[in-house]
Write a protein that binds this DNA or RNA. Structure first.
Lengths: 156, 156
DNA sequence: TTGTCCTTTGTTATAGTATAACATATCCCC
DNA sequence: GGGGATATGTTATACTATAACAAAGGACAA
């Protein structure tokens, strides 16, 4: 599995692998990996960029699906609920998970130049502070904005 | 300074202290702490909860300010730009900073029961992973949802 | 003093994000 | 072939945010 969406790689492999993992996960858990849900995941997988719901919606419309907001949002809810995609809160946008099925605490590195988003593993980001406060953590969002290696090189 | 908005405390002291710090910071940096900006900060300081821009707007209207969106958003932009308030991305809402002026990397603990938000210090949440990826971090968002001590006790 | 620059606030309009509520369809299983 | 569960279609609306331009006021120099 790639550690970073920043480094060049065979992206068609990325796509195939993730779709395969999604199929396997849905089969294992008795979930329906319907054409709509599959198509939304494919759209997200076109690149390591976060897409807004309405951007996804446009592409769905081109494929003959209903181009109304709930269509996209419901598919995204399914994908995020099962760890196949994540919402990037800073961007109000969505991205395919790069290692579905594996338990993880994702952190995202968002390049503000090229808009590429890389998913990495977050260390215990709030664990100690939460413990000290007596706070019981359910989910953690960790997102960093900045500049990816390629864009640092391109704009010195 | 309180480590947590979860523990009971003298909140009027909270308010006075933060407003004082804001005044001092603006005086020091040559910024204009106008009545509008001050009022928005006061509104945010009414409790340790995040408020939406339109919620703030309603209260501004009651005080004779223009109740149009840019009024609130511009004040919030000023406050967040200078570290006097923060945006909670998970909630699309805003909260007063509990220790303005001090350099910090805030992390937020969001109670999904009572909606209280506590600000704590984030450890280097993405440092190692970013370094490994060659990513240059500009800003980091760390937000955890969960249950605060009081709500854990109330709903066992 | 008045004219110009700059910052802040007011105002109008619109863009972008998300969900509620109800209708229809499909499939599985009995 | 009827009943329940799940998924999708459809309509309407709520919520969040910004662009663009107008107007008010202070600071400061000519």
């Amino acid at each position: 599995m790639s550690q970073s969406g920043f480094t060049p790689h065979d992206h068609s492999g990325c796509i195939a692998q993730t779709l395969g993992a999604a199929e396997a996960l849905c089969a294992r858990e008795g979930l329906q990996f319907t054409p709509l849900r599959r198509r939304v995941l494919e759209i997200l997988l076109t690149g390591h960029k976060a897409l807004g719901a309405y951007e996804i919606l446009d592409r769905l419309g081109a494929d003959g699906f209903s181009a109304k907001p709930p269509t996209a949002y419901r598919a995204l809810e399914f994908l995020t609920a099962h760890g196949l995609a994540h919402k990037i809160e800073r961007l109000n946008a969505y991205i395919a998970c790069t290692h579905p099925g594996e338990a993880h605490n994702p952190a995202f590195l968002i390049c503000t130049d090229c808009e590429t988003v890389a998913e990495t593993e977050a260390p215990a980001a709030v664990g100690p502070a939460a413990k000290a406060a007596g706070f019981k953590v359910k989910a953690t969002t960790v997102e960093a904005t900045g500049t990816c290696p390629a864009c640092q090189a391109a704009r010195p």
